[in-house]
Write a protein that binds this DNA or RNA. Sequence first.
DNA 1: ACAATGTTTCAATACTATTTGAAACATCGA
DNA 2: TCGATGTTTCAAATAGTATTGAAACATTGT
Lengths: 157, 157
Amino acid sequence: MTIPEAKDKFIEAWGAFGSAWGINRSMAQVHALLLISHEPLSTEDVMEQLNISRGNANMNLRALIDWSLVRRVLKPGERREFFEAEKDVWKVATHITRERKKRELEALIRLLDEMEDIPGATPEAKSIKKMTHDLHDSPPAWTTCWTTAHAAMCSGS
Amino acid sequence: MTIPEAKDKFIEAWGAFGSAWGINRSMAQVHALLLISHEPLSTEDVMEQLNISRGNANMNLRALIDWSLVRRVLKPGERREFFEAEKDVWKVATHITRERKKRELEALIRLLDEMEDIPGATPEAKSIKKMTHDLHDSPPAWTTCWTTAHAAMCSGS
DNA sequence: ACAATGTTTCAATACTATTTGAAACATCGA
DNA sequence: TCGATGTTTCAAATAGTATTGAAACATTGT
């Protein structure tokens, strides 16, 4: 496998993976490109290498910065900005999960909170209460369940 | 909050959550509905309660069974099938992560495998090698990183 | 065999999300 | 201040996904 082939495949795969997990493909591809670059890239570099528009490149670079996955880099004597990815996989994982937690999990947890006090003791009411309770408060709350199970699966089989 | 309100909110929230994670909304909503039902539901029940078509309901019920999140239940004397969700949150988490691993992670890992032997020692080649290696083989492989970090985030702050 | 009941499929359609591209906006140096 | 260079925004176009609904298929009881 040649270098350019490897690059393309990695970008494609990371893009597809991101997309399956609800992260838009361009964002994941820009991230992939920066992850495997040995030096910071400019907006133009990103546009050219991925064949995407300026607007798209700009928007996703900003989003990646917002997620703390990419840093702005200024080269001395250069007017334009360059971008560099965080390459420590541990940090990458941490930043992604922190953002997703903030954006998606918290809304759900908040709702489960509100649902604490549902009236009634019909089988239906009981069932709703039990499920929301299990998801919300049970000792290893379901989010932990999820991730622990995931970790187990990944390291295991 | 009344029971029907709670039901609707839960279904909506679970649907939105699923959607953000790349699971189609209807599938997540059907799952939510079954999670909080105190008894198994028929295809018709699902169609009515969620206002979705027969085709959609059927397709997503099959998908949920395929993910081991829902079981087919036969009531004695009834011709049609009923459906019941797995309610143990631990199992739910395990089944979801197992499926997603199978479907999405393995393709990526396979590619990273292939990328083990990239030629060249230019800075570019080195950078690609390092990243794919880190993602693929480093002791707590990145998947574990991800999930461990996630678990930490969720139980923590 | 056939009517009744229930399930599955899939082409057409509706819907949602992403991407573009061009205009507006900033900043710098002369 | 003005031209050059670089960045941001956002409405419109496009691409991608999900949903419908009706027809085909399957199964059961008589």
